[in-house]
Amino acid sequence: MGDHATSAPAATAHAAHESFAQRLLTGSVKKSYDPVVDLDWDAPLDPDKLFLPPEVISLYGTPLWDAMTPEQRRELSREELANVLSVGIWFENLLNRLLLRELMAGDPTSRHAHYTLTEMGDECRHMMMFGKLIDRIGARPYWPNRFERWTISGLQLVLRGSMVWVGALVGEEIFDAIQRRTLDDPDLQPLVARAMRIHVTEEARHIGFARDALAHRVPTMSRAELHYTRLCVAVAAPLFVYLMTNWHMYARAGVEHGRAARRLARANPHSRRALGLGAANLGAFLDKQGLIGPIGTRIWRRRGLL
């Protein structure tokens, strides 16, 4: 009787987990995109419009920004977009590797596995869309330096179990919140706004999937896994935010003293507020799951993420 009492809630939770994955599969059939055909890559770029909204550009509100001409601001927005898209490509590359590894231990007949494969297909198309967009706006991708490449590759070794889903949420939710501020901006390049709308639509399903998977796992965590997850949460979001400001993008945009510009951007209260807004929903969700902890709270607050 004790075994039955223990297994019944687990069976109910598993059924709900599978039902949610099936709804996501159905949503993917109804609304998915192919960036090759769903974006007009031949449409001309507007010579007067920015590539990111001013309020999400890292130097917005600083004396350096105020001294810039419209042309300099446009060029900085182009390079910042190229950097954001490059970070997105690295992240989605890493996420697909993690998801593929998870499938090795999963049930290939489950709806959860089927949606995992669907999400991987989405991410492959997103990487191609980001690469095409970088090329179309006349920019070059930003490559991680040697230390960052080692860090990104090393994450495959430490992001396991619950941390796969925490890592997915950190990359997806902060990026998603920034993108949502581009959707209806009349001063933004139409091609950029369209690409961001496609990504936001499909990422909404990915975020829901990761949240469901993490919430499903939390009740079964051992104390050791809980502490490990809290430690990883403490550093994951600050690491992702760190990658969003690359000193090379200031140099390419013609801003003198790129490293000094990066320091200014990282201390910029406007930039910190924009990233904080991006992390707000994620922080609330992780806190509800008991996954931030006191160390994470201090680090996230210091970085302006709470």
Rank of each mutant, 00 (worst) to 15 (best):
M1N: 10
M1A: 14
A5F: 11
T12L: 14
A13N: 03
H17M: 13
E18W: 10
F20M: 15
Q22C: 02
R23P: 00
V29H: 06
K31H: 12
K31D: 13
Y33H: 12
D34R: 12
P35N: 02
V36F: 10
V36H: 11
V37M: 06
D38E: 12
P44Q: 09
L50Y: 11
Y60S: 10
G61K: 03
T62H: 01
P63K: 05
E71W: 03
Q72G: 08
R74W: 12
L76P: 07
L76F: 10
S77N: 05
E79W: 14
E79T: 13
N83D: 05
V84Q: 11
L85K: 02
S86M: 08
I89R: 14
N93P: 00
L94R: 01
R97A: 00
R97G: 00
L98Y: 01
L99Q: 05
L103N: 01
A105P: 00
T109D: 14
R111I: 00
E119Q: 15
E119R: 05
E119S: 02
M120C: 06
C124D: 15
C124S: 15
F130D: 00
K132S: 13
I134Y: 05
D135I: 00
R136A: 13
A139P: 07
Y142N: 04
W143A: 12
R149S: 04
I152V: 08
S153R: 03
L155W: 01
L155V: 01
V158E: 01
G161M: 04
S162E: 07
M163K: 04
G171H: 01
E172F: 06
F175H: 04
F175S: 08
Q179D: 05
R181G: 04
R181W: 01
T182L: 12
L183R: 11
D185N: 09
D187H: 10
L191P: 00
V192W: 02
H199T: 07
V200E: 07
E202P: 06
I207S: 07
I207G: 07
G208C: 02
F209R: 05
R211C: 08
A213L: 00
A215W: 03
V218W: 08
P219A: 09
T220N: 08
M221G: 02
A224D: 10
H227E: 11
V233P: 03
V235P: 05
V235M: 10
L239I: 07
L239Y: 12
L243Y: 11
T245Q: 03
T245C: 07
T245A: 08
H248P: 00
M249Q: 14
A253I: 00
G254M: 05
E256N: 10
N268F: 04
N268H: 03
H270Y: 10
R272Y: 11
R273C: 13
R273E: 15
G278C: 08
A279C: 10
A280R: 15
G293C: 02
G293A: 03
I299E: 03
I299L: 14
R303F: 15
L305N: 06
L305Y: 07
